[in-house]
Design a protein around this nucleic acid. Structure first.
Lengths: 358, 358
DNA sequence: CTGAAAGCGCTAACAT
DNA sequence: ATGTTAGCGCTTTCAG
């Protein structure tokens, strides 16, 4: 039963023969399980090189039950759902850790749950999930799977305490936001939150409220609104805040860049100057922030750090000991742009990065 | 040597025992290699269900030399390089084909070449590459690898005739663009091309020139410029086209949306109205097109079709016969927006479709 | 430290 | 059509 295998013509036996050692020795040398770098090791490496040998992946996984593969489950690839920076960073981190990245885009909880099982059956070494879906099917799957595998969730609301979580310190983000607006002279801040039931919207609101009061920034109850993170919603919310009102806010904190962009457009339509009349701040630091006119100040989650931490957790050696879930919230950065701060140079100068009107 | 394997507790032998058949039969039933759906098949499926069995992936691949895995090699995840729509579509197509997606983001030709080899060693069943790099290392790798595997390149300039190519019919795109501008009343069209050495810039220029002449649109030699696809370049090019000139174009065709956005900004700075004084058209239909003010008309490559075709080529059964590379250029769509066409409703009406996600 | 040999779980060949 | 059996190529015992 001799077949031409497409994947690897040359096997460990060939290398062993050429180096005049046993296959076991070749395996040990090439996988670094051998102390000395003596004559034998040299011969083996040279033979492997000469034959252009690389180990058959399936055989190796079958035997050792290690795939050096990390599964990534996402709801969708888009700036709002999964910032491309995060994806690039994850890919880089996984490459640096000498692993492979298996990607599945599952648009709903059911698909994601299926992806997860399919990854388990395939034998990934770890799982990264980015999702806000709190469907039972998904959470059950996670609670089941975490026993076999390290699983890390990135961002969003922690789906289950059994798996690790990496994300942004949102309360800190809110504090930075409010402080920044106060520094820029804002006195009356509105807050366009996410849906109350998603994420830690309640916690965030509390932080917002506390911080605003501490700074004497009188948050009017009507100025805090919960809703979806879309441009349309930002647009409508802005109209409701500013039109036909005697007292209006002079700053708007938005739960997402999309909402902030909607507010920005609304302001143009009703002839409010940004930042002079209204300051606007977004969340996520998406590429559109720099394209906006004026460029949009936004909270920049440290995606690179989050990606590295997620991969670190998964690759962590836990020989013997049970895995314990870890939780890590990174302090984000506030990216100052024109929407909260009038630069000395003329606005929309092309030497500034970006600057597209919309 | 009995170990607790993390991936799959239950093996095909368990299922065989429970169903009271041989392992071979179980394998055949579950992989659909068996004609009838008789009593035996029922028993096997039920047993598999009951034991929550799923085949060990490594063992299956090792034996059959099939991994149901497609490798995707990219330069970077960003709207310009690899539209997120394309990525989502690829993922969906691969899911529909019941395959896995292995992703590698290699920022330069050398990394991409390494990724490619690493995928080969891993035994992917096929390879999709998105790249414009014409580095020898990469092309050599492709020329070598295509003998073992189906490889499809998506977009960009065909790297080697040995691998399949799927992309956009750029000449058709150019024809549509010029025709559209003529219809909208443009008489003097400028063309900001890509670098002459990249892609089929020369072919495109020829199409542009021929089509413009056929429609009596006198393309001034100074109005055709080659350069990088950046906003900055679009901005500078626009200034050079419009400032201090007696005769200026009334339409600008851009090789990318980024260039078009740069032109848009320049026009605002020098007080040219879009589309009244100048019509602008981009390429790629990136999310920023809808955010721009005025919204940017752009060529929309049919990413979904391209993704499906790429996956189809890879999954194609070629029993016996050698694989022949296929080339397929899809006719794109022209998305009419305000930058070439004054709508009846007020500009940037929030009820316009798509003013939500970006 | 090295080599011999077992066997990971599955599928394909072969025999019935 | 089903069962029996031989490996796929590797890693890891186990013996020396």
């Amino acid at each position: 039963m001799t077949r031409e295998t497409a994947s690897s013509q040359t096997s460990i036996a060939n290398v062993a023969a050429l180096a005049n050692v046993s296959t076991a020795t070749v395996s040990r040398v090439l996988s670094g399980q051998r102390s000395k770098d003596d004559d034998i090791a040299q011969r083996v490496r040279q033979a492997a090189d000469q034959l252009n040998y690389s180990a058959n992946f399936a055989a190796s996984s079958l035997r050792s039950d290690v795939t050096r593969t990390i599964g990534l489950v996402l709801p969708q690839i888009s700036e709002e759902e999964t910032p491309t920076v995060l994806l690039n960073s994850l890919s880089a981190a996984i490459r640096a850790a000498n692993r492979y990245l298996l990607l599945a885009v599952g648009t709903d909880a059911q698909e994601q749950s299926k992806d997860l099982h399919s990854f388990l059956a395939r034998g990934v070494d770890g799982l990264i999930i980015i999702s806000d879906s709190s469907a039972d099917s998904l959470i059950d799957s996670l609670n089941q799977a975490h026993k076999d595998l390290p699983i890390v969730q990135i961002g969003g609301k922690s789906l289950t305490p059994h798996i690790s979580w990496v994300g942004t310190d949102e309360s800190e983000a809110m504090r930075m936001t409010v402080d920044h607006l106060a520094e820029q002279g804002a006195h009356a801040i509105a807050y366009l939150s996410r849906e109350i039931e998603t994420y830690t919207a309640a916690d965030l609101f509390t932080t917002f409220y506390t911080q605003a009061k501490a700074l004497d920034l009188t948050p009017d109850p009507d100025w805090v609104q919960f809703g979806p993170c879309t441009m349309e919603r930002g647009y409508q919310a802005a109209l409701s805040l500013f039109q036909g009102r005697r007292i209006v806010p002079d700053a708007v904190v938005c739960a997402s860049d999309a909402v902030a962009l909607g507010v920005l457009i609304a302001c143009r339509h009703i002839n409010l100057r940004v930042p002079e009349d209204v300051k606007i701040i977004g969340y996520g630091d998406s590429p559109a922030c720099e394209l906006a006119q004026p460029a949009l100040t936004s909270i920049h989650p440290v995606y690179e750090d989050m990606a590295n931490e997620a991969v670190r957790i998964i690759c962590e050696r836990t020989t013997g000991k049970p895995r314990l879930p870890s939780y890590r919230a990174f302090k984000p950065e506030l990216i100052y742009r024109e929407s909260t701060w009038s630069p000395r140079t003329g606005s929309s100068d092309m030497t500034l990065p970006g600057a597209v009107d919309y």
